[in-house]
């Protein structure tokens, strides 16, 4: 079908959109871009910048904030992703029947052999990224997404492959429980949920350092990898 666009009918929408965007934009100019807010005496981030390596043992400050200072947000974030993945499963089972899909064209040898070759490397790289989340850019979410992107490649190349939803659900569950469990250990030992009780362990900058942060990021990495794979596989359909 052809859509017809009458320019005069889109004027109100364009004006409204410009007005809202301009208001947000002007407020942002008022707040200021590139100004050293953190140097203000009373800024929250001051402590993150000057103390986080000592306090958490993490060389990556963003990781220190994500997993330690604001770990509770991250637990919520993991929950959101869990809900999306579980919700997708529930919705897929409520979907009305769709059209029969055509059989896809079989992929060539280069694609299948190449995929088999790079898939382990992608997964290894993903694991590397989440294990080193406290040292270098990246972390559990990024690593998990890298793993899922490898499996996305696999799903595209081998459309007949059925995702092992049970195994994915199990690893999702276990990883989520270990994240919450680490938090509860903090509550039981120090009386504070998600307290990094062994932050002093190891030397900053080394792989074994930053206490519980790498453990949490490994759990997140596995969880995100499993959930994203599940999401992609469900989107492909056919194996609810």
């Amino acid at each position: 079908m052809m859509e017809r666009y009458d320019i005069h009918r889109s004027i109100p929408a364009i004006l409204l959109a410009l007005m809202v965007a301009a208001t947000i934009f002007y407020a942002f100019v008022e707040v200021g871009f590139g100004e050293p807010e953190v140097d203000k005496e009373d800024s929250v981030s001051n402590r993150f910048i000057s103390n986080s390596t000592q306090e958490t043992g993490s060389s990556n400050f963003v990781t220190a904030v994500v997993v330690n200072y604001r770990g509770f947000d991250t637990l919520g974030e993991v929950t959101v992703l869990f809900l999306a993945s579980a919700g997708m499963g529930a919705i897929v089972s409520a979907l009305p029947a769709g059209d029969k899909r055509k059989r896809p064209i079989p992929p060539s040898l280069i694609l299948t052999a190449g995929t088999r070759l790079v898939l382990p490397l992608i997964i290894l790289f993903g694991a590397y990224v989440f294990v080193h989340g406290h040292l270098s850019p990246g972390g559990g979410f990024q690593g998990g997404v890298i793993i899922a992107s490898g499996l996305l490649l696999y799903i595209v190349i081998f459309p007949e492959w059925k995702a092992p939803h049970k195994a994915l659900a199990l690893s999702e569950s276990l990883a989520g429980l270990s994240f919450a469990g680490i938090g509860i250990i903090g509550l039981a030992v120090g009386g504070i949920f998600l307290d990094n009780v062994i932050s002093g362990l190891g030397e900053a900058g080394m792989l074994v350092s930053a206490g519980l942060i790498p453990l949490i990021y490994i759990a997140i990495g596995i969880k995100v990898g499993a959930e994203m794979t599940g999401l992609v596989a469900r989107m492909k359909g056919g194996d609810a």
Binding site: A86, L170, L174
Partner: peptide
């Protein structure tokens, strides 16, 4: 600790698939 108000359901939700 009121944080349990959030932690209990999260643990419960993670338990269900297993």
């Amino acid at each position: 600790d009121p944080v349990l108000l959030i932690v209990i359901p999260l643990v419960a939700a993670f338990l269900v698939p297993m």
